Simulated assay, not measured.
Amino acid sequence: MADNAGRVAIVTGGSGGIGRAVAERLGTEGYSVVVHYAGGKERAEETAAAVVKAGGRAVVAGGDVADERAMAEVFDLAEREFGGIDVVVHTAGIMPLAPIADLELETFDRVHRTNVRGTFVVDQLAARRVRAGGAIVNFSTSVTRLQIPSYGAYAASKGAVEALTLILARELRGRDITVNAVAPGPTATPLFFEGKTQEAIDRIAGMSPLGRLGEPRDVAEAVAFLAGPARWVNGQVLFVNGGAA
C-alpha cells in the first residue's frame, strides 16, 4: 500500500459492475479514487464507501463521458481533492444489441457517442493531466475477436477504442505514461445478463476453457496490474477472458 499512497485514480463508470470492482481493487492498494457515474449517484456513493473500507480515499463525481466540459469538471475535482491524477481507468460504456440489419441508426449513433467520443474525451483530458509515472487504461472487448452476432455496433465502437489506445501510447512518448486497453470476455455483470436467456448465458459461459463467466474482480486484477506495476506494458490490448478468444 505504501507504494500507492498518494496515487490518485479516476474510474469512469465506477458506480457498478466492472467499474466498481476496479475502484475497490485500487482502494485495497491505497489509491485515492474519484468514482465517476453517469446516472447512479447512490450506487457511486456505495462504491466510494467500499473504497474507503478497503483502505483508500474516495469521492464521487457525475457527468456524461461524451461531454468535454462535464468530464473536465471530474478531472478538476480529482486535482482539487487529491492534488493530481496518476491513473485514469475508463470503463464507462453502453452495449445495446441487435443484428446489423435491424439496429436503428439512432442507437448506432448513441453507442458511438458514448463509447468512441466518450473515450476520446476522457483520453484527451488524461493525456493533458496525468502525471509522469501514470497510466491510462481503456476498455475494449473480446467480442472484437469472437465476432458474436448482434454485437456489431458495440464491437465496432470498441475497435475504435483500441485504435485510440495504441496511437495515444505512442503520442505520449517521453512522458512516462503507459496507455493500454483491457478487453474482457463475457463477464457476470448486469449489463451482460440483460436480455439473455439462461440457455444463452450457459452457452456463452462454455466458450471459456475454464467453463465459467468472468467475474468483475477478474478484470479488476488486470487493471490493477496495468495501473501500477506493469510499467513495461505499453500500447497493448490485454485480453481478459479465460481463454475464450
Rank of each mutant, 00 (worst) to 15 (best):
M1S: 12
M1V: 13
N4H: 15
N4Y: 11
V8G: 00
A9S: 05
I10A: 12
G14Y: 10
G16A: 13
G17Y: 04
I18S: 09
A21K: 10
R25S: 12
T28F: 04
S32D: 08
V33R: 06
V33H: 10
V35S: 05
H36Q: 09
G39R: 03
G40A: 14
A44W: 04
A44G: 05
A49K: 15
V51C: 00
V52E: 14
A54Q: 02
G56Y: 07
V59M: 03
V59D: 08
V59Y: 03
V60I: 12
A61R: 02
G62H: 02
G62C: 11
G63L: 01
G63S: 01
D64C: 06
V65C: 02
V65H: 02
V65S: 01
A66D: 07
D67C: 13
R69M: 12
R69G: 08
R69V: 09
A70L: 00
M71Q: 08
E73L: 15
E73A: 13
V74Y: 06
D76G: 14
D76Y: 09
L77K: 15
A78E: 05
A78C: 05
E79D: 07
R80T: 14
R80S: 15
R80N: 10
E81C: 04
G83C: 04
G83L: 03
V88S: 07
V88N: 09
T91S: 15
A98I: 07
P99K: 15
D102G: 12
L103Q: 08
L105T: 15
L105C: 15
E106K: 10
E106V: 13
T107M: 07
F108A: 05
D109A: 15
V111I: 15
N115E: 05
N115F: 01
V116L: 14
V116D: 04
R117H: 11
F120E: 05
F120P: 05
L125H: 13
A127M: 08
R128H: 11
R129I: 02
G134H: 07
N138E: 03
S140Q: 03
T141G: 12
S142V: 07
S142G: 14
S142C: 13
T144F: 07
P149S: 09
Y151M: 13
A153M: 10
A160N: 05
V161D: 02
V161M: 09
E162I: 09
A163L: 03
L164E: 04
I167R: 15
L168H: 06
E171Q: 01
L172S: 00
R173E: 05
G174N: 10
G174I: 13
G174S: 09
R175H: 02
I177M: 04
T178D: 00
N180Q: 10
V182T: 06
G185E: 12
L191N: 06
L191S: 13
K196I: 13
E199C: 09
E199S: 15
A200H: 12
A200N: 13
I201H: 06
I201N: 10
R203T: 11
A205H: 07
M207G: 11
S208Y: 03
G211H: 10
G211M: 04
R212T: 00
E215Q: 13
E215G: 08
P216F: 12
E221D: 12
E221M: 11
A222P: 00
V223G: 03
F225E: 07
A227T: 06
G228K: 02
A230E: 11
N234G: 02
G235I: 06
Q236E: 07
V240D: 00
N241E: 14
G242T: 04
G243Q: 06
A245Y: 08
